[in-house]
Amino acid sequence: MKKLKITVEGKAYEVTVERMDDSDGSPASAPLAAPAPAQQAAPVKRADSSPRPPIKAGSITSPMAGVVLSVQVADGDEVEQEQLLLVLEAMKMENQIIAPAPSKVAKVHVKAGESVAEGQVLVELE
């Protein structure tokens, strides 16, 4: 446990910091109550935003730029593993986009005839 003095916009705050056990992400013990002003300073700005787009778990993205030929599922559908979700025409091929695991279709983001870019979210599964 460490006591630190942090200055935000000219105001000094005293905070107590405890190192968390990073193996499971949970703190080694219950977090200590910080003095009231410190809470205002809580949202720490990230020095640099990550270059990766925030891809949610279960998002099926387009492996390459192409045109959606047909969509085989609708919002709310239950799908099995390896079930065909949609067909993407790209690089002289009708590429089958399949479900990686049994899941439920949360939202279909594209429709037949639509052009999509590489990495664009096609379908969200949950």
């Binding site: 390459m64 790209a90 590429n95």
Partner: peptide, 8 residues
């Protein structure tokens, strides 16, 4: 492997 990224 044409199954993935059309084999590109």
């Amino acid at each position: 492997q044409p199954k993935v990224k059309a084999g590109t």
